[in-house]
Write a protein that binds this DNA or RNA. Structure first.
Lengths: 336, 336
DNA sequence: TTGAAAGCGTTACCAT
DNA sequence: ATGGTAACGCTTTCAA
């Protein structure tokens, strides 16, 4: 920076101002300085800058899995919402493990992010403590936690499960199952399952056809195996909701191998509105949670929080939309 | 840190040493200091640490798209390979746009990463300049660039295309097409296409059945449309390679809508060994490039580079495996 | 609109 | 094995 200042014939302080926005400086001085910086290939050192100003320009974010179109969409929403504010995303994935989340968060907080976005409302006690005492905006997403840390942008996974139970019931299905992951790890998937089960009971149906023998993420392979186990144990099952569309696609694949017609012999539904569910044969009924919009809203919340003084901070709880997308895979009820 | 030092009855310098590894300090002093730090909830400030030491602990990485299982696998490989070294990944996605890559890289370099990983060998001139003059290990992945910036971990996309052309020819297909993205943006997909075309010509076939009307990433929807266009223009096409498995799945879906049997009426092949290709009906022939291994090798290269003095740095070019995975979607040749 | 000086929290270096 | 001191490159604050 001193070199740039010398070349432009000004002080380092003026260079510092010229290279930021929202600072008082004359147009021609700035132009001169920017030219000098370009000549020298100078890029401002965000490390030193953050160190001096206390604003690092980082937003830390954790997601359960990087290889998941839903969370990827939320990340995209955040990135898009933050792009023009020169904020750099610090991304980590927890592998659906809150102990790993704690480790990640601890490492990320060392880099002093200006805000933090986490997925879900389940955290270790230590992680909750780290976050709540950190002193920067925190946003929990993809859930409506009973005890929010601070801001929330999410939806009720329980409601999503109930929505699908209602739909399958309305279509005439009565022997309804669920394929999903480990309750301890994918807490949101577990919430969907609980809502689904609870609604089945309210509708007067059994809720014991639950196959959850797999670790999350429940992918195609695990779901195909789970489907085999389901049919083995309850051969008369006439509909199944899967914890995600990927699982539903795996189940669909297994159903073909059993010689089943979907939905004539069995209905299959998913969750998440992945591309694959729209292009499967038959197309798979699913639930769309507008993952990118969750990210955009989280980014908006952060911008507002960073823009206002600490006294103005009010906790924001924003519930996002959950839409059922009805397709052929649950379209034809059997005669009962 | 001063508080911790006071509480433990030592100097800040000793605290600094106690909280790092590989520093000379007595066991009991360290124990005392760690206890004091825990009591105070003290976490070292990586910003100041990086500022003082010149080592930030960041590894910057750019990928074309976050929502792509192949690149996600590479990211996972990098993360896993770096985890125990306390390196934090700074991830950005370019959306297959080298101008966006330049912007991203510039922003990331401001945070002074200890190493940089990029996807592919196509960069803007300015980006090449920024990277080559940056003074830290650089790894290009997923390609074998003609003019590498420094280290490379990748494979020949051209060869991958040729491999599939050979397979389809061997199976007896003769009227072979390609569905892929914009040559300007997905340069690796374009290389696959070029190798594919070139091999078709060597085998004495036409190479004009190329549909590339879409912007990358060529996803299911675009590929389905492209398939329609292909059949409209060249109804007698008997095989098609798609730029990725996602595209292949979209094409498969379109083929069903045309009433085609795959592979009896037309063979469909993909690239990337995505889960979806293994669970589609029929299962889709693809090419496995071991995406996670690319990431692990890149991480290994970086660890070695960071561990050795600058004089010992020799450029490493590591070619990775490319395996064809033959499945039912290309299994049954037609009579010619 | 510009400049000078102080200081951000840590580590490198040298001394003990 | 431990401590003192300078320095990292920038921004904040205050003054001109």
């Amino acid at each position: 920076m001193a070199d740039v200042a010398k070349r432009a014939g000004v002080s380092t302080m003026t260079v510092s101002r010229a290279l930021r926005s929202g600072t008082a400086i004359s147009q021609e001085t700035r132009k001169k300085i920017v030219a000098a910086a370009d000549d020298l290939g100078y890029v401002i050192d965000a490390t030193a800058s953050g160190f001096a100003s206390g604003k690092t320009g980082f937003v830390a974010m954790t997601i359960p899995s990087i290889d998941n179109a839903n969370f990827a969409d939320t990340v995209r929403g955040v990135t898009d919402g933050l792009r023009e504010y020169n904020l750099q995303l610090l991304l980590g994935y927890t592998n659906y493990d809150i102990a790993e989340e704690e480790r990640l968060i601890e490492g990320m907080l060392g880099h002093r992010p200006d805000a933090v976005i986490v997925t879900g409302g389940a955290h270790t006690d230590r992680c909750r403590h780290l976050l709540s005492s950190y002193g920067a905006p925190i946003v929990e997403t993809w859930d409506l936690p009973a005890k929010p840390l601070q801001h929330v942008v999410g939806f009720s996974n329980n409601e999503a499960g109930r929505l699908m139970a209602d739909h399958l019931y309305d279509q005439g299905y009565r022997r309804i199952a669920f394929i999903g992951g480990d309750v301890k790890r994918d807490t949101r998937g577990a919430d969907r399952r609980r809502g689904f089960e609870a609604r089945l009971v309210e509708l007067g149906l059994d809720n014991d056809r639950i196959i959850s023998a797999t670790q999350p993420p429940t992918m195609m392979h695990e779901a195909a195996q789970a489907f085999d186990a389901l049919i083995d144990r309850w051969p008369d099952t006439d509909a199944v909701m899967c914890v995600s569309d990927l699982a539903a696609f795996g189940a669909l694949s297994a159903a073909y191998k059993h010689g089943f017609d979907v939905p004539k012999n069995i209905a299959i539904a998913g969750f998440g509105a992945y591309d694959v569910s729209a292009f499967a044969s038959p197309e798979i009924t699913t639930i769309d949670v507008k993952a990118a919009a969750i990210g955009r809203q989280a980014a908006m919340l952060i911008r507002e929080s960073l823009g206002s003084s600490i006294e103005d901070q009010t906790r924001q709880i924003r519930q996002t939309a959950v839409d059922i997308v009805i397709r052929a895979s649950t379209a034809k009820p059997r005669e009962n």
